[in-house]
């Protein structure tokens, strides 16, 4: 208990010597944050959502040998409405990123994204493919990256622990740390469109600039010629 108290205690506030082991004095927001984070950090519900090879290791992590129930994370919810954590477990293709963004928008806040494996983190071995998105962070904010191809269940558990640490560091007194308590709804991530290639609405200005007036401002050709 005393470890917990020492962590909670604000070192700037003096406490009489004799009661130090039993008393912690701290600011209200820190106390509330600690209790709030303690309440949620052992009950993060991931979405039951497998994309590719990594999903198999994710299932293995949920089995009895690795037992992710130890972290309160065994409740895999098939519906995004009930999930707190999206584990992007595998290669994100252009065709799949549309439903992924839609699912992310459907998750209630606070929500977290864990990019599992090389593909979800940066495209991985399939990066050069014409239908592959170079990492889900092109579209969604990612909280934890887990390296590996695929990551072992141990690595995924480490990713969970990292996420819990991040969750513990979030502060109720800081609006930027917990944006879901700010006024008004959060912005939804714009949903990409399947055109001649994937169209990210946030890149429309670039597409207008480079594709609509191709020559001679075709920079890709220029860069290639340079190389």
């Amino acid at each position: 208990m005393s470890d917990f108290l020492r962590e909670l205690h604000d070192p700037d506030i003096p406490v009489p010597e004799g009661i130090q082991s039993a008393v912690a004095v701290t600011r209200l927001d820190k106390l509330l944050s600690t209790v709030y984070n303690w309440g949620r950090h052992y009950s993060v519900w991931p979405m039951a959502f497998g994309l590719a090879c990594c999903a198999i290791e994710m299932i293995a992590a949920a089995s009895s040998r690795y037992d992710q129930a130890r972290f309160g994370m065994e409740v895999l919810r098939p519906s995004p409405r009930q999930a707190d954590l999206m584990i992007v477990s595998g290669t994100v293709t252009k065709k799949m990123v549309v439903p992924i963004v839609r699912l992310y928008n459907q998750m209630p806040e606070p929500k977290y994204v864990l990019a599992m494996g090389a593909c979800a983190s940066g495209g991985g071995p399939f990066k050069e493919g014409y239908n592959v998105v170079s990492g889900i962070d092109n579209f969604l904010p990612v909280d934890v990256y887990v390296p590996g191809c695929p990551p072992t269940p141990q690595a995924l558990l480490h990713g969970f622990i990292t996420l819990i640490k991040k969750l513990d560091s979030q502060n109720l007194g800081n609006r930027n740390s917990m944006p879901w308590y700010s006024r008004g709804p959060s912005d939804a991530v714009p949903i990409p469109v399947l055109g001649p290639d994937i169209i990210d609405p946030r890149q429309l200005h670039l597409i207008r600039r480079y594709a609509a007036q191709p020559e001679p401002a075709d920079e890709s050709a220029a860069v290639e010629a340079e190389a």
């Binding site: 493919g129 001649p196 290639d197 600039r209 594709a211 890709s220």
Partner: peptide, 19 residues
């Protein structure tokens, strides 16, 4: 590879494409 493409992404559009 991102540096090769003006969009910084794995995308290419046909010439004259207007979103």
């Amino acid at each position: 590879a991102e540096e090769l493409v003006p969009y910084g992404r794995n995308v290419r559009y046909p010439d004259g494409f207007s979103p």
